[in-house]
Design a protein around this nucleic acid. Sequence first.
DNA 1: GCTAGCACTCTGTCTCTCCGAGTGCTAAGT
DNA 2: ACTTAGCACTCGGAGAGACAGAGTGCTAGC
Lengths: 346, 346
Amino acid sequence: MDDRKLRILAAVVDEYVTTGEPVGSKAIAALPDINVSSATIRNDMAVLEQLGLLEQPHTSAGRVPTFQGYKLYIEKCMPGAGLSEDEKQRLDSMFTDDAALTEDGLIQSATSALAEITKCAAVAVNAMPQFSVISKVEVIPTGKRLYVILLITSAGNIKNKACRLEFDLNDEQLQFFTAFLTEHLHGVSLSDLSPEMFDRLVTAMGAYMATLSPLVQGLYELSRDMMRQELTVNGTRNLLTCDELKTQDIVEFMENQDVIMPILNDTFSGIHVMFSEDAKREHPQQTFVIGNSSMIVGQYRKDGKTAGRLGIIGPMRLNYAKVIPYLEYFTEKISNLISEKEDDDT
Amino acid sequence: MDDRKLRILAAVVDEYVTTGEPVGSKAIAALPDINVSSATIRNDMAVLEQLGLLEQPHTSAGRVPTFQGYKLYIEKCMPGAGLSEDEKQRLDSMFTDDAALTEDGLIQSATSALAEITKCAAVAVNAMPQFSVISKVEVIPTGKRLYVILLITSAGNIKNKACRLEFDLNDEQLQFFTAFLTEHLHGVSLSDLSPEMFDRLVTAMGAYMATLSPLVQGLYELSRDMMRQELTVNGTRNLLTCDELKTQDIVEFMENQDVIMPILNDTFSGIHVMFSEDAKREHPQQTFVIGNSSMIVGQYRKDGKTAGRLGIIGPMRLNYAKVIPYLEYFTEKISNLISEKEDDDT
DNA sequence: GCTAGCACTCTGTCTCTCCGAGTGCTAAGT
DNA sequence: ACTTAGCACTCGGAGAGACAGAGTGCTAGC
């Protein structure tokens, strides 16, 4: 693979990304850093096409990169530009201050900023929520026979669920129950909350059992709810305005976002770019991917361990040279923010 | 306005709603309950067009109802069919059991069911959240110097917010503060929580003041957050597949949903149908409405008073005869469910 | 007041042509 | 051996005309 051919590939990608039109040999010959004639470029492009890196929409049109072309571009030819201080500040200003106080809020704010700035959809999943630990359980009366169970984990996640009982609890019962739950559940990892464990809890409650079992049931459901990986998606609407994606596909994605979870979870380290063609091949069981799309995924960390993944879904024709640094900056920033929080705890 | 003309209007609407094609005089003459020739119908249709009830996309095409045509149809000619038992059961089955336990959950579940069954977008706002009353305030430590404020209202709404303090609180301080807040805030209506009131609270706290003021600040923000009317929107994506609406408009709506709040809040009683033309006229300051759309709004009640509004946004070409009964059934059902809850409380 | 008949109008579709952009190939030049 | 100039070729898109079909308005007769 010639150096000049790589430069031509890069030129095609850059040009196509900005104009959206198939790019011809003349347009490339006109570029300042290419000093050969259009005929030579035609020859090279024919070779690049044979290698599967470029393709022609039809015989007498210019060339367009294939997903393999993009891959090689990202790997070999992409300008490795970092972000300017201005850009960093701009990104920073998109985080609201108190979003950083909870991981949920942080992810929410990061995905929405990322979607805004890339004009793509931004996605995130938290990794391994089943390993977080219960830090607080509380039962709060909110109405006649109506109670809210409140569950807080060490990661700072908060969830609640309403339950209706057959009878009302008096203060003593409520206190007993709260103390009972705290005693048995505080510090317990979510993954240890099996149905059997709850059965044991119920029997251990003795006389209160019958009255309180709906609460225990609710608590079980709440814990299941909490250990489910949470998928955050923001800005899917941005995809609607980009005309190389079919609205049909996007609507299907909106209705069925969970299908991308396995794909997200598949990426191991660093920034990873995956095209819809890849996804179709590697996850054929998935009912659906958005055609002509690409997905860029990175990890954010907490104490050095992957704590979740953050990514972008956009058209294949995307300014990777800009978008990838954005994603890198965001994952880095999130890692710092949640680790900073962690530092405070110790 | 002739009776026959009304029948013809109704026929045009029905036919157009099902086929989506402009309907001609012959098609109407072929209907069983119309016993005049196509020429007569042509004459009548010309009159209906002059009245602004029908219009022609172009000279040699059939007629299409205008929004005024739809209005008259809904008012005068629509078959007032109730729902069959089958349909009611189908709707009932779309509510999950525990959704009914909180108003939020109920509205979430209702809008999503309504969107699903009408293939439109479903919207809801709660009315007058500022009049609900604080039933519980709690401060829960979740990490080093990190606290969560929990606020529960009499309506069963639950919200929380994380706060970071300068110093940690010991148990005594925490208990004091919780007791202090409960004493001063329990039973207070959200609308009474003015900044001045919080100022008084802060000074009343005396020695604790400096330490705790971020919490008070957080509490204030939380209460402001809670008295904001909550807009629930579900199934906007359904609109994307209906081709008389411009995707551009829908995207704008997605980005800017709040603009419909004043329109929703404008409807007073019963079911109200409003077309984008109306909205443009009555709310000209609104930056945007979806073109060719209609919005159907009803109220749900609690103790006989309007507690919120539930509505549908869809294309103007909509099967009103089906959709309106659906909406009626839903508002009725919600009213019963939240009033049933209320009954329990008393 | 209704209806049959007729001329008219307009759209959507199909075909044909033409233009231009871009290619591949060949032959000549370095 | 590589590069370049030149040329014939291909293909899509735009534009013009022709045509069929649906639907109308109008007039004359029942």
